[in-house]
Amino acid sequence: MFGLLIADDDLESRKQIADLFIEAGYHVTVTNSVANALYGVLKKTAQVVLISSQFDELTAVDLIPLLKHCDRDLTIILIGSEESLPSIRKARKEGIFYHALKPVRPDDGEEIRLAVKCAYERLIARKHALAYG
Score class of each variant (00 low, 15 high):
Phe21Asp: 04
Phe21Asn: 05
Phe21Thr: 10
Phe21Trp: 07
Glu23Met: 15
Ala24Gly: 11
Ala24Leu: 15
Ala24Cys: 13
Ala24Pro: 12
Gly25Trp: 06
Gly25Thr: 11
Gly25Met: 14
Tyr26Trp: 12
Tyr26Ser: 10
His27Leu: 10
His27Glu: 13
Thr29Val: 15
Val30His: 02
Thr31His: 07
Thr31Pro: 05
Asn32Phe: 10
Asn32Ser: 15
Ser33His: 14
Ser33Arg: 11
Ser33Cys: 12
Val34Ser: 06
Val34Asn: 07
Val34Phe: 05
Val34Gly: 05
Val34Glu: 03
Ala35Met: 13
Ala35Val: 12
Ala35Thr: 11
Ala35Asp: 11
Asn36Gly: 09
Asn36Pro: 05
Ala37Ser: 11
Ala37Trp: 02
Leu38Tyr: 08
Leu38Phe: 08
Leu38Lys: 09
Leu38Trp: 09
Gly40Ile: 03
Gly40Ala: 12
Leu42Pro: 13
Leu42Trp: 14
Lys43Val: 09
Lys43Ala: 12
Lys43Cys: 12
Lys44Arg: 10
Lys44Glu: 10
Lys44Ala: 14
Thr45Asn: 08
Thr45Ala: 13
Thr45Phe: 13
Ala46Cys: 07
Ala46Gly: 07
Ala46Met: 06
Gln47Arg: 13
Gln47Asn: 11
Gln47Cys: 04
Gln47Leu: 10
Gln47Pro: 06
Val48Trp: 02
Val49Thr: 04
Val49Cys: 06
Leu50Pro: 02
Leu50Arg: 02
Ile51Tyr: 00
Ile51Gln: 00
Ser52Pro: 08
Ser52Ile: 03
Ser52Ala: 14
Ser53Trp: 05
Gln54Glu: 08
Gln54Met: 13
Gln54Ala: 14
Asp56Leu: 08
Asp56Thr: 10
Asp56Val: 14
Asp56Ser: 08
Glu57Ala: 15
Glu57Trp: 14
Leu58Val: 05
Leu58Ser: 04
Leu58Phe: 08
Leu58Pro: 01
Thr59Leu: 04
Thr59Ala: 04
Thr59Ile: 01
Thr59Phe: 06
Ala60Lys: 01
Ala60Asp: 00
Ala60Met: 04
Val61Phe: 04
Val61Thr: 08
Val61Ile: 13
Leu63Thr: 02
Leu63Glu: 06
Leu63Ala: 05
Leu63His: 03
Ile64Thr: 03
Ile64Glu: 00
Pro65Ser: 06
Pro65His: 02
Pro65Trp: 01
Pro65Lys: 02
Pro65Thr: 03
Pro65Ala: 08
Leu66Glu: 09
Leu66Ile: 09
Leu67Tyr: 02
Leu67Cys: 08
Leu67Asp: 00
Leu67Ser: 07
Lys68Cys: 08
Lys68Phe: 00
Lys68Thr: 04
Lys68Ser: 01
Lys68Gly: 03
His69Tyr: 09
Cys70Arg: 10
Cys70Thr: 10
Cys70Ile: 11
Asp71Asn: 07
Asp71Glu: 07
Asp73Val: 00
Asp73Arg: 01
Asp73Met: 00
Leu74Trp: 00
Leu74Cys: 07
Leu74Gln: 01
Ile77Tyr: 12
Ile77Arg: 13
Ile77Asn: 09
Leu78Asp: 00
Ile79Gln: 04
Ile79Tyr: 01
Ile79Phe: 01
Gly80Leu: 15
Gly80Cys: 11
Ser81Leu: 11
Ser81Val: 12
Ser81Asn: 14
Glu82Ile: 02
Glu83Lys: 02
Glu83Ala: 12
Leu85Gly: 14
Pro86Val: 11
Ser87His: 00
Ser87Glu: 05
Ile88Cys: 04
